[in-house]
Simulated scan of single mutants.
Amino acid sequence: MFHLLRMDRPLARTPGRGAASNPANRYDRFSAEAVADGWAPEAELPVLRTELRLERPRRVITRNASPDVPFDRSINPYRGCEHGCIYCFARPGHAWLGLSPGLDFETRLVARPDAPEILARELSAPSYRPRTIAIGTATDPYQPVEGEQRIMRQLLEVLLAFRHPVGIVTRGTLVERDLDILSEMAGMGLVRVGVSLTTLDPRLARAMEPRAPAPERRLATVARLAEAGVEVRAMVAPVIPGLTDHEIEAILARAAGAGAVAATWVMLRLPLEVSGLFQDWLARHRPDRAGRVMARLREMHGGRDYAPDWGRRMRGEGPYAQMIGQRFRVAAARLGLARDLPELRTDLFRVPPKSGDQLSLF
């Protein structure tokens, strides 16, 4: 058995990245620290590039029994996310690959090119029973690498062929490329898209979400989806206390104006390694707010940076969490976004015939 030697500070420049380090994950036994020896000035270091590896899983539908999420199955076309959102709660998942939740998460990506074929096989199983599949609840299916890989588009083609419902979450404007498929599915009540909106401040967004589309561009995507007949849920996520919480009403107003029909919110979550990465980001980008942000979070989680308890992990507890929830409810109701949208249809599901199959007369 061997163990990786994790280098905390990379020997490369990292422009356009959310994390500034590559800390050891919770499974690493050894780590190393880079120390400048004076021979290579930082300006001469190479720029850290994105790497893509391929994975061929046996299954692509992941099941969950979490009582506080509205879906029981999901698909992740990619592991890791080049958007580089510093607050992403999915970062710790990279530790399962022997990689760091820091820079590795946003630069060492894994794609699943066989996912559409495997999905078709899983949906064709005689025992399969349809319920809405969630895509984008961990890493973004419309991150930049999708432009070349087109895995998400092929997954949608399979879902359309099977008449299977899907709920998509993204902050990527590449979703507009698939409006032809999405509008057809929307006409049958088979799709809904949630667009994540964290802040309207472009400078703050660039620092927190360095390779995600700018806020105004995401609002334009909301409008394009709505114009194509696709229901859009505005997702004010995450709400960051002391940093973005004052924008709740403004974000909802802009989303409603762009055509969103419903809205949800989630409080900032800092599980496992995300806490250290986010606090490092605060120290570098918002040192004047760091104490306030972390004090509010700990107030909502019983003195801890994060409490993973079901039913509380998404919103927190206490007076501050209650105030945020009340502000959101009042603003959403005023703007017509406080709606419980109906379930997507499952009664249209069918396994499409294959070449050579005997077709029905009815």
Score class of each variant (00 low, 15 high):
123 L>A: 08
175 V>Q: 00
114 D>V: 07
160 L>P: 00
69 V>F: 00
82 E>W: 01
308 P>C: 10
153 R>S: 09
265 W>M: 07
82 E>M: 08
122 E>H: 06
84 G>W: 08
260 A>G: 05
217 R>S: 13
241 P>W: 11
204 L>M: 13
60 V>Y: 09
338 A>L: 12
318 G>K: 04
38 G>C: 12
161 A>Q: 11
238 P>Y: 10
360 S>E: 15
339 R>D: 02
48 L>E: 07
230 V>A: 02
336 G>S: 04
208 M>T: 03
347 D>F: 07
248 I>V: 15
230 V>M: 01
291 G>W: 07
35 V>K: 10
269 R>L: 06
223 A>Y: 03
50 T>F: 07
43 A>H: 11
88 C>G: 08
157 E>A: 14
335 L>F: 00
198 T>K: 01
153 R>M: 04
353 P>T: 12
51 E>Q: 15
198 T>Y: 00
221 T>E: 01
28 D>G: 02
186 A>W: 03
41 P>C: 01
238 P>H: 05
281 W>H: 09
7 M>N: 10
270 L>V: 10
273 E>W: 01
359 L>N: 08
30 F>W: 14
230 V>W: 00
95 A>N: 09
318 G>T: 08
270 L>H: 11
8 D>M: 03
125 A>T: 12
282 L>E: 03
120 A>E: 07
42 E>G: 00
225 L>H: 11
247 E>V: 09
176 E>V: 15
281 W>E: 05
88 C>H: 08
92 P>A: 01
316 G>C: 05
126 P>T: 13
